[in-house]
Structures are given as structure tokens and as C-alpha cells.
């Protein structure tokens, strides 16, 4: 069994310092977080509140008409626990016209539209509130590509992207994220009864371990099978990682000149700050 234990105090210090530094470098002091009621967005909200002060964080709840009341309640618990500013902006009246236009839409398309509608709301609130959007994607879902491009993956900075789900859980416990948020099954809450693990076909506990071995330890798929992982499971995960890589990189630019953005025009975003 791979040990995914982290020292939450170390992670907390690095991540809160990082959020503060990077938002200040962007010329701002505030942050906006979309709060779903789930673990990851609660974690980002806790970190941002500690980094910037709760008065400088706006948590936005963006329910759709099918969203569960539990999600709204859990999001409220996070708002109460952190003391951040909050707003509730329903996406139903914005999403509905597009959804109704294509009644045969697959759940994938419907889910993407909702995720992107929330992105539009968050980025609008970002401009109105004067804060950067803090991302909520963890390492597990980034690697699996279990995310909507330009939807829930859209953000100004992401403090959770190098923590596996199991590690977010440890940090959340240490920082006092409400228990009801921590113990419930992860879900995108796009339809009743949906869970991440049901959709993915495996559990976070299993896949975190495998991803750590494949990515952090650079093991080959064959070595993972030799270590006892089911071959079909390994193949499925390796394939997901590869197929979804487009979600993790900027769109390629066709190179024509001697100096091209993305290839040989190389500066950090923090350039000059």
C-alpha cells in the first residue's frame, strides 16, 4: 500500500502563503470561489479565507434546479465556518434556454453546459468583486480528466492541483472543514444520485494509489500490474490520463516564425513581480 500521508501543517503553510503571494502579484487582495458543497471547493475556500482574511473571499453558490438541497446546506456550512462573504446565483434561468433548445442532449453535454455557466458567473463575480478565481481541481481529477475544460477547471490559480483526493481529505480534516462535507460521497451533482466513483467505475481510494505509483513514482503500467493492480483497471486509468492530456495544456499554436508563444517565448506568469 502506498503511503499518501501528508503533513497538513506543511501543506497549509505553503498553500496559504502561495495564494496570498500570487493574488497580490496579480495586483489584487481578494478571491472568488465557487462553492458546490463538496470537499474540494470547501478546501479552497478554507485556504483562501486563511490566506486573505474571510472578508476578502467571496464564496458563490450556483445551484441548478436539480441540485440537491444537501449541497446547498453543506456549502452554507462552509460559509458559516469560514466567515467569508457569500452570494447565491442560480444558473437555472441562464442554462435553461440552451438546454431546452436541444431536448435530446446527452448528460455529458448538459453537465458541460452547467459547469461552463458556473464559470461565466464566477468570472463575472471575479470582475465585480475584484478577486481572482481560486480553482478547486485536485490532482486525481486533473490526471483523470474528470473535469470540464473551461468549466470547473477554469481558474486564476489552483492550490489543490498537486494533492490527491485522499490528501485533500487529510488537509480538510486538519483545517476544520465540516464533517458532513468530508464524509459524503464526492459528486458533480449534475443529476440526482450521481457520484464521481459511480461514473468513473472505481474508487478514489483505489485510483489515488495507482496514480501515485504511475505518476509520482514513474512506474510502468506493467510494474503496476505486477504490484497487484487489475490489468483492466490499470489500462483504463493510463488511457484516461493520455486521452485527457488536452485539458492540462494550453492549446497548441502552429509555429511559423522564429519566436512563438508557447515554444520559445518563455517567461513565468510572475515575470516582473
Amino acid at each position: 500500500m502506498t503511503d499518501l500521508t501528508i503533513n497538513p501543517a506543511v501543506a497549509r503553510k505553503i498553500l496559504t502563503g502561495w495564494i496570498r503571494a500570487e493574488i497580490n502579484r496579480a495586483g489584487m487582495q481578494r478571491a472568488v470561489v465557487g462553492l458546490s458543497g463538496g470537499l474540494d471547493s470547501a478546501m479552497s475556500c478554507f485556504l483562501a479565507a486563511e490566506a486573505l482574511g474571510p472578508q476578502n473571499v467571496l464564496a458563490v453558490r450556483m445551484p441548478y434546479r436539480t441540485s440537491s438541497q444537501d449541497s446547498l446546506d453543506d456549502a452554507q456550512r462552509v460559509i458559516d465556518a469560514t466567515g467569508v462573504q457569500s452570494a447565491t446565483i442560480e444558473i437555472t434561468p441562464m442554462a435553461e434556454p440552451l438546454l431546452e433548445r436541444f431536448p435530446d442532449m446527452t448528460s455529458l453535454r448538459r453537465g458541460n453546459i452547467m459547469a461552463r455557466m458556473r464559470m461565466i458567473v464566477l468570472y463575472d463575480q471575479s470582475a465585480a468583486f475584484g478577486g481572482l478565481v481560486v480553482g478547486t481541481g485536485n490532482k486525481t481529477e486533473i490526471l483523470l480528466g474528470y473535469t470540464t475544460l473551461y468549466g470547473d477547471s477554469a481558474c486564476g490559480l489552483n492550490p489543490l492541483g498537486d494533492l490527491y483526493k485522499a490528501q485533500v481529505r487529510q488537509l480538510a480534516a486538519a483545517m476544520g472543514v465540516p464533517e458532513s462535507v468530508r464524509v459524503k460521497p464526492p459528486t458533480a451533482d449534475l443529476w440526482a444520485g450521481q457520484t464521481d466513483e459511480g461514473e468513473l467505475g472505481f474508487t478514489y481510494a483505489e485510483v489515488d494509489q495507482l496514480l501515485y505509483m504511475l505518476v509520482d513514482e514513474r512506474a510502468t503500467p506493467e510494474e503496476c500490474v505486477q504490484a497487484g493492480y487489475d490489468e483492466g483497471f490499470v489500462r483504463k486509468v493510463v488511457d484516461r490520463i493520455r486521452r485527457n492530456h488536452f485539458k492540462r495544456v494550453m492549446p497548441p499554436i502552429a509555429k511559423l516564425s522564429n519566436r512563438t508563444v508557447g515554444y520559445d517565448f518563455l517567461y513565468l506568469r510572475d515575470w516582473g513581480t
Partner: peptide, 11 residues
């Protein structure tokens, strides 16, 4: 650059 977060109090 700090890297290698684990259970220890040091990266």
C-alpha cells in the same frame, strides 16, 4: 524549490 510533501514536517 520545495517538493516531496509527505508525512514529515519537512519537504
Amino acid at each position: 524549490p520545495g517538493r516531496g510533501l509527505n508525512g514529515s514536517d519537512r519537504l
